[in-house]
Design a binder for these strands. Structure first.
Lengths: 120, 120
DNA sequence: TGACTATATGAGGAGTTTCTCATGTTGTCA
DNA sequence: TGACAACATGAGAAACTCCTCATATAGTCA
């Protein structure tokens, strides 16, 4: 009952298809972190974060190691960051194609009065 | 109201998180195709395929061009194939890590009586 | 124009995911 | 041992996604 490749791939992408899970990976790019270190950056309620981490863990994308009373999470395979980078590239390229989003970016740059750093 | 990067990324991966949509991209790797050319390979009922194509279109991952009575679909940015390849690599590496799946692969190789080529 | 082909859109049930709240487990430290 | 901290798990409502079926639109060709 081995699944066809495209199903495994789709499942894999699905696992990445959640803002909090992406956020976790972005933070882990800076090195291993405990759950309580992740929490403020990801900004989820503790149990919810735990659930999202469990999704990433079950997919084999991150791994946890107990250290005293904390669990230290880290990515299993640094290639994941390459994937995130290619995705970013694709998004940038694609933004240049869709007029409205480009316009939005434009307006961000051309209005010096706006707090540009206020996102996030 | 610009979305934070991790939301856009998550949305992007979500778009890839469906077997049929991955399948479409795999077929389009061989060059542009009309909907009716895609259909047998993807194996969805026509209207369902149309809906999935619309998801990919709205995400800017594929584009359609009318040619007579057919729509010819193609990928917008060939970098998407790089993404699919990195994903494949990650999956392969990750398979080597999870014992059960490796065992499954093993059993495929060690049973000569089985039709190995029967998938897909 | 009418019949036909190719593709798209909409509505709705079934299934899945997300998130909250309550509770469980495991480790630390006094 | 008991109290506390750090994390995980489970149940359930709300929101979303998938898929089917019915219908719509656009192009071709007689």
């Amino acid at each position: 009952m081995t699944k066809p490749i495209y199903e495994v791939k789709a499942q894999f992408f699905k696992t990445l298809g959640h803002p909090a899970r992406i956020r976790v990976l972005e933070v882990l790019a800076g090195g291993p972190r405990s759950v309580s270190e992740l929490q403020p950056d990801v900004g989820l309620e503790a149990s919810h974060l735990s659930q999202q981490l469990s999704v990433l863990r079950k997919a084999g994308i991150v791994q946890a190691e107990r250290q005293g009373s904390s669990q230290i999470y880290s990515v299993t395979d640094p290639q994941i960051f390459e994937l995130l980078n290619v995705a970013k590239q694709l998004i940038i390229t694609s933004l240049s194609g869709t007029e409205d989003m480009l316009a939005e970016l434009d307006s961000m740059n051309y209005q010096p009065g706006r707090k540009k750093g206020s996102k996030r």
